[in-house]
Design a protein around this nucleic acid. Structure first.
Lengths: 205, 205
DNA sequence: GTCTATATTTGGATAGAC
DNA sequence: GTCTATCCAAATATAGAC
């Protein structure tokens, strides 16, 4: 993290990186404050507790990410043909963009993957309370496009697809592109691969 | 965990469950020993350290799992046709069997998923040193079946597939089957879904 | 807002009796 | 092999000066 940011921002950035690398329980506030070159007490001053710091790490990026996802999903609805791929794209592409945009965005995608693996009740409730409606929007869209699937079968597949995508995107954040491929091109190809991968899984009989 | 097992076995079983639920850093030895109804000191007596306990949780199941995987892989080699699906099946099915066999097997599949997400150096080295050759065997088999893919492209996809499968299997461990579907049938169908899902991803152009 | 110092809790590990 | 008691380190959190 750049030292020219405010204390608060430096903590958030470093925490994001360390949570991605060691998990929420595995990264201590001491590691975070040391790496951010701020005082230990600063975390409690700015965030109140480790729990709240974790939530703030999510909030900082999820608000924007989900806004983009919903906008992309809305754009699909009016546009017939290739709809399953388009809905998947609406879910994947914003995460991909974010992971390559801002410094630290790549780390956040890994944090998301961690969250998916965590079964911590408080964390799950926080995410469900604040961002659950986004997933429900997508689930509704998928249900409309895959009417032949029973409800439980659909949810089962969506859960698998969500897990697969989350992890694929997390790993993707670490893939180095070749020098002869533009950033734009690389992102484009990767998104297409993931969409095709997921669509095939959802369409299975 | 059944109370009629030995102290050592009870610790392993409970540790497996709690590591699956809270992660390696998130589950304390005190939680483990309390849930196993054994004394705190028993962990160090039987395993020496938390680190060694974690390794033993893996060793207990991975030895068997990987033996089955390699046996299944060897059986594929002599058998032409549908080979990509067969190799995937050789990887998936043993994990699925294990997850439904023994009590606690389902938890272990989740522990595997955790390990996949962990970037802890010691844990990764332990797994790589002891079980890396299995993954290399599979990678070789895939490389033979997908000769049109560049080496880096292949590794990228295998990593994604491995992540997707690991997570799919972990989630699968929690799916309840319907009463009108036999255990056998349920397992069979799930394995087929996962194989199809992964094969489609690997075959993408 | 930031720092030092410290309170409090929790967790891993051990010593020594039984 | 098991238990109690305890040590020590690490972690979260807070108090209070600047």
């Amino acid at each position: 993290m750049q030292p020219n940011f405010s204390t608060r921002e430096r903590i958030l950035g470093v925490a994001e990186t360390l949570f991605a690398r060691h998990g929420f329980a595995g990264a201590s506030l001491r590691q975070v404050t040391a790496a951010a070159k701020v005082n230990l007490a600063a975390v409690n001053y700015h965030f109140g507790s480790k729990e709240s710091l974790i939530e703030e790490v999510f909030r900082r990026r999820l608000d924007e990410l989900n806004r983009h996802r919903l906008a992309a999903l809305a754009a699909v609805a009016t546009n017939p043909g290739r709809q399953l791929e388009d809905v998947l794209d609406a879910f994947i592409r914003p995460a991909l963009e974010q992971s390559m945009d801002s410094a630290g965005g790549a780390a956040f995608v890994r944090v998301l993957a961690r969250a998916y693996a965590e079964h911590d009740e408080r964390l799950r409730r926080f995410l469900s309370d604040n961002y659950g409606y986004v997933l429900r929007e997508f689930a509704t869209a998928f249900a409309r496009l895959l009417p032949h699937l029973r409800k439980d079968e659909l949810y089962w597949r969506l859960d698998i697809v969500a897990g697969a995508l989350t992890y694929a995107m997390a790993d993707f954040g670490m893939i180095k592109r070749k020098d002869d491929v533009s950033e734009q091109n690389h992102r484009e190809q990767s998104a297409q691969h993931l969409v095709r991968f997921a669509a095939a899984g959802l369409r299975a009989p």
